[in-house]
């Protein structure tokens, strides 16, 4: 599954901010850390502020901070602010009505359901608590 850019930026921002919720970070600091466009990131952060997951404070020492509930907010909640992954593609072709087309649709639906269930089962807290397990399985650098 390929998430769009805004969704990925939102996930990086939320997880970064939630890892130290008392800390304020500027859009530039987050953008620099993840090597992403700060211009685009600001728009994403505004969406997160509107969704009441992120608070912003202007001026010196200000910036963004996570204000949501790390136990309740899941990865799916964040993804769904930016894209509707529950809906089938809008483009509907005549071939989708054929026997093969319908069977293919069922397989894609099966994959989508697993994706949604997985994203919905991982809270921010769980992600931050367990992400080191994924790190342990990365191939070790030889340098």
């Amino acid at each position: 599954m390929k998430l769009n850019k805004a969704t990925r930026f939102a996930l990086f921002s939320i997880l970064e901010l939630a890892s130290t919720p008392e800390r304020h970070l500027s859009a530039t600091e987050i953008a620099n850390k993840y090597d992403i466009s700060s211009h685009h990131l600001v728009k994403v952060l505004h969406s997160l502020v509107r969704a009441r997951l992120v608070g912003s404070v202007r001026g010196a020492g200000g910036g963004y901070r996570f204000i949501g509930n790390t136990k309740r907010i899941t990865l799916l909640d964040i993804v769904e602010i930016f894209e509707d992954i529950r809906q089938p593609p809008v483009e509907h072709e005549a071939a989708d009505e054929t026997e093969i087309g319908q069977a293919l649709s069922q397989i894609m639906l099966e994959i989508d359901e697993i994706t949604i269930a997985t994203l919905n089962s991982i809270s921010i807290e769980t992600f931050l608590k367990t992400m080191h397990y994924y790190q342990e399985e990365l191939p070790q650098s030889t340098s």
């Binding site: 899941t74 997985t118 809270s123 367990t130």
Partner: peptide, 11 residues
């Protein structure tokens, strides 16, 4: 699902 994920289980 959420419980087992919180215990570090994954696909």
């Amino acid at each position: 699902m959420s419980f087992f994920r919180s215990q570090g289980m994954r696909g």
